[in-house]
Design a protein around this nucleic acid. Structure first.
Length: 926
RNA sequence: GCGGGGGUAGCUAAGCCUGGCCAAAGGCGCCGGACUUAAGAUCCGGUCUCGCAGGAGUCCGUGGGUUCAAAUCCCACCCCCCGCACCA
């Protein structure tokens, strides 16, 4: 009888929905939501699924609430990753080929063409649209675009003109990770190794040796006062080179690095490390010192020569001690200069000896060094003779002094090495010039953003702190790139606008995307966009009618109501877009709200394409059906929580939908006369509608689903149990069916579209009215009565289970009126702990003595166990217990299969009857 | 390191702001029963421990505290996850 065929439902609904979700400005109130558009460089997995299904559920909900809803989609193809991918495919990189051929299942003929980056994004954009459609996303595809469309570029140019004129764009220089083989800066995912490496700014301390300079890099220039020697690796061949015209002695590697960091370098000759050893060098702040041999000196670290501060650097201390144990350089003594709590006179010696380290290669050395450096920085003070300042201040002062008076410059180097590019080449630090920045550091701009944030609604509210912090912490952002796809930077057309900077106000572009396509890109002057988005009139605007239509769209839809995105974008995109909006748009068009998503896990592990730990969305839809995928993703966690995809859980969701489908079919033709239990069911339904509605208004898809699906299902279970034998329910079930199908329509639209037809609904359920709460169906009296019965049945069952005799009859004895009086007095008492005294002041009660005090105690306990709203109802309206149980006698008899007697506790011969309390009758099973 | 989030029964996950409804919802899993030739599906019941009367005991990362009353409030500690920029 089932007829449950999700595949068929999907096909049918897809036909009905074609072009159904293409809203135009109208008289209706609008609801505009947008999600971060995808970067289509690979196939969609179930994690992406949730990102786009959550907004769809919200869109469908508001559509049914009578709003004109816009849910648009486009594709972000700007940037460098696909360039890398196409290159790797071109050179037949095995790993990449495997990913695209096997995991993403790109047909061989298509894969061949992936040597062109645009082909990749085109292919996956189409795939995205196909899979999104298969998932039932109610997207207005007329507005689809990509970020390299010429019209979009015109839009971006307009945006940047405004940013530039407002002084938000400046030019500067910037150190970056750079591959000399690719001749390009490299990002995290271009790296084979060292993706955690940070660029650190070192001070080069210039020692003089003959006519040449020996630079040594340090993060602790203040320790110059404690330098006792330099270290040179005797196994390394150094060079003498003219750096900016002056002779320096450095390692070969250092020469290459300096070349990338704004220095001219001309190599003069090689110098074996050994020939430097035992010569001397001088620095005005430490005098003349010897150069000693040390194998730990890495020529690939900064200048390749190291200054030695044995009193404060464990490595230096040990290296010196080793030499001295061989009887060499025994006259050199560590020169301490910093006093720090927790360490002795010579901190490095102290630390090394305390840890019992005998060997430079001891693995604890790094941790020991780190700990000492931190303590010195945090708590250390220089000796009085060196100025007596705290280390953190002295460090800056000495660095400044050195660069002003002693020829020090800056050298950039990574904090961890090696850093290796995907091409196999070692990555170095390069200083980029002509680098353009967005001045996010500008306090005035920040203030505007903070103000706007205050007016925005953020979901969940906890993320507000993170936004505030991001605004506070944001520095200037390098906004141009040399490689990739994108819009040319107007003030230097050799560069491109960087991807996170060309995707900040495109939500406005959606409003006109389908109309602007009709215009020739070269007619799209800044004045055109000024008119559309800012309402600025100007002479000679082309095709004014079209522009008016676009202006109209923009005014209707903007600002957007909510923007959705994953939480990892808080620290960039989501915050950037506020910056750009406040810089360009008028106050009434600024963003209204944001919803931040959690991440997706697959079987408990983080989803990651590169590790192969993904489940493709299309496969999931094929295997389980779109509604199942949707319902699982919406029901397993709230949007902002992380969710975990597990196939076995998903499979059970499918059964749940089938159960729902069957239940509707069983109920839709019921025609019996309504009874009290029907009134109960309808009264409860109201509450579920209310809660589902409130949950969806708050984006709580999980909560909404619990209410709309499981709560109603559980009510129906009880309802069916309460029906007289042979009855399959009353005609009221039909309105329950109608409401239920509509409540679930945002979640499982395919199945609901089919059911809507089956139950004779008008039009599409996607556009049906959301169920409304009609308070006249609220029936507290019946709900309370049913609650009493339900609780009593539970008691009966637990007793029955416990006593393990075959019952022959059941007697239910009802509490006497005076116990009700006690109950009410306590329930209404402002302080329930004191209520007993009030009760015992009453003569009648006092005459009952212990019986009354016991009852009072039991009532107090009971009141604390009952839900407050029930207590309130009992105390105010009360409930006619006798009527409830007499009416339910046939039901109880059917349930337990024995005669059921209802008596008053006071007239019952059973001792147990005395335990009867209000809302908790005594029970005797014999 | 800095910043944010979180630790609840076999798993998952509500509850915490606004203390008593909490032995703690829902879902999954598992166990028992009904149906079936059987399996599956479906339906019913159970699922911390003890108890032949609806109860009692222990429990919500750990240890303290406040309160008539704490998963919930306060303090300290332990552990896990995420973000930190030239990258979409």
């Amino acid at each position: 009888m089932s007829g449950f065929d999700p595949g068929a439902f999907e096909q049918r609904a897809q036909d009905l929905w074609r072009c159904a979700f293409e809203p135009d400005p109208s008289e209706q109130e609008k609801y505009y939501l947008t999600v971060a558009y995808p970067y289509p460089s690979g196939a969609m997995h179930v994690g992406h699924g949730r990102t786009y299904i959550v907004p769809d559920v919200i869109a469908r909900f508001w559509r049914m609430r009578g709003r004109q809803v816009l849910y648009p989609m486009a594709f972000h193809v700007t940037g460098a990753p696909v360039i890398g991918i196409s290159k790797r495919i071109a050179r037949h990189d095995e790993k990449t080929i495997r990913l695209y051929r096997d995991l993403y299942r790109v047909p061989p003929a298509v894969l061949e063409k992936f040597t062109d980056p645009l082909t990749i994004v085109k292919h996956f954009s189409d795939e995205y649209q196909r899979v999104m459609t298969a998932c039932g996303l109610s997207i207005d595809w007329r507005r689809r675009f990509t970020t390299v469309d010429p019209t979009y570029s015109k839009f971006i140019e307009w945006q940047w003109k405004h940013l530039y004129e407002a002084g938000h764009v400046i030019k500067g220089e910037h150190p970056v990770r750079y591959c000399t083989f690719d001749e390009n800066p490299v990002g995290d995912h271009d790296l084979l190794e060292g993706d955690k490496a940070e660029v650190i700014k070192f001070t080069l301390v210039m020692f003089r040796s003959g006519d040449a300079v020996i630079p040594t890099a340090t993060l602790r220039p203040e320790t110059i006062y404690g330098v006792t020697n330099l270290w040179v690796n005797p196994g390394v061949t150094y060079i003498r080179a003219l750096v900016d015209g002056k002779p320096w002695v450095i390692s070969q590697e250092a020469a290459e690095k300096l070349l990338l960091q704004d220095h001219t370098v001309t190599i003069e000759k090689e110098i074996p490390g050994t020939s430097l050893i035992d010569t001397t060098a001088t620095h005005p702040l430490c005098g003349e010192i010897p150069i000693l041999p040390a194998a730990f000196v890495d020529p690939d670290m900064a200048s390749g020569i190291v200054m030695s501060v044995p009193a404060h650097a464990p490595f230096d201390y040990i290296a010196l001690r080793d030499l001295q144990q061989q009887g060499r350089y025994t006259r050199i003594r560590p020169v301490p200069l910093i006093r720090v709590e927790g360490y002795g006179e010579v901190p490095a010696q102290d630390a090394v000896e305390r840890a019992g380290i005998t060997d430079q290669l001891d693995p604890r050395m790094d941790a020991l060094t780190q700990e000492m450096y931190s303590s010195e920085f945090a708590k250390g003070k220089l000796f009085e003779k060196y100025g007596g300042k705290p280390v953190r201040i002295a460090r800056e002062d000495v660095a400044a002094l050195m660069s002003e008076q002693y020829g020090s410059t800056v050298m950039y180097e990574f904090d961890t090495r090696p850093v290796v590019c995907r091409c196999g080449n070692r990555v170095k630090v390069k200083i980029l010039h002509d680098q353009w920045f967005l001045r996010y550091s500008d306090p005035a701009w920040k203030a505007q953003v903070s103000d706007q944030l205050k007016d925005m609604s953020l979901v969940p509210p906890e993320v507000r702190i993170e936004f505030d912090r991001t605004v506070d912490w944001l520095r200037d952002w390098a906004c141009t790139r040399r490689v990739g796809l994108g819009t040319r930077f107007p003030w230097d057309t050799t560069q491109l606008i960087e991807p996170l900077s060309d995707s900040t106000i495109y939500m406005a572009y959606y409003t006109i995307a389908h109309r602007i396509r009709e215009m020739a890109p070269d007619t799209l002057t800044p004045e055109v966009f000024d008119y559309i988005f800012l309402g600025k009139e100007s002479d000679s605007l082309p095709q004014k009618e079209k522009l008016d239509a676009m202006r109209n769209e923009f005014l209707y839809w903007y600002p957007y109501n909510f923007r959705f995105s994953a939480k990892d974008l808080i620290s960039n995109h989501l915050t950037f877009q506020i910056f750009h909006h406040v810089a360009i748009f008028e106050k009434q068009h600024l963003p209204q709200g944001m919803v931040v998503f959690g991440m997706g896990l697959l079987n408990g592990a983080k989803m990651s394409s590169s590790k192969g730990n993904v489940f493709l969305l299309e496969d999931a839809v094929k295997e389980f059906g779109a509604d199942t995928v949707r319902m699982f993703l919406m029901g397993s966690a709230e949007p902002w929580q992380d969710f975990d995809w597990r196939n076995e859980l998903v499979a059970s969701v499918k059964k749940q939908i089938e159960r729902f489908y069957n239940a509707i079919h069983e109920m839709k033709d019921a025609g019996g006369e309504p009874k009290d239990i029907d009134l109960w069911l309808m009264s409860r339904l109201l509450e579920h509608i209310e809660k589902t509605t409130a949950s969806l208004e708050n984006f709580q898809t999980r909560q909404a689903l619990q209410e709309a699906f499981f709560s109603i299902e559980n009510d129906l279970k009880w309802y069916r149990r309460r029906l007289p034998e042979g009855s399959d329910g009353s005609r009221m079930l039909r309105s329950l069916c109608s409401a239920w199908v509509r409540l679930l329509a945002p979640f499982i639209p395919f199945t609901c579209e089919k059911l809507w037809q089956d139950i004779g609904g008008q039009g599409l359920v996607s556009f049906a009215d959301w169920p409304v709460v009609d308070q006249k169906h609220k029936n507290r009296r019946i709900e309370l009565a049913e609650e009493l019965l339900l609780r009593t049945v539970e008691d009966l069952e637990s007793i029955k289970k416990l006593i393990q005799i075959t019952p022959r009859s059941i007697t239910i004895s009802l509490a006497p009126a005076w116990k009700y009086e006690i109950f009410k007095t306590i329930a209404r008492a402002p302080d329930r702990t004191l209520a007993i005294r009030t009760i015992m002041k009453d003569d009648l009660m006092r005459r009952r003595g212990k019986e009354a005090t016991d009852a009072a105690k039991q009532c107090t306990a009971l009141i604390h166990r009952l839900p407050p709203h029930i207590v309130e109802l009992i105390a105010s309206d009360g409930v006619n217990e006798r009527a409830v149980f007499e009416q339910a006698t046939p039901f109880l008899k059917k349930e337990f299969g024995v005669p059921v007697h209802i008596t008053d506790a006071e007239s019952s011969p059973h001792a147990k009857a005395a335990t009867a309390l209000p809302f908790k009758p005594s029970i005797v099973i014999e």
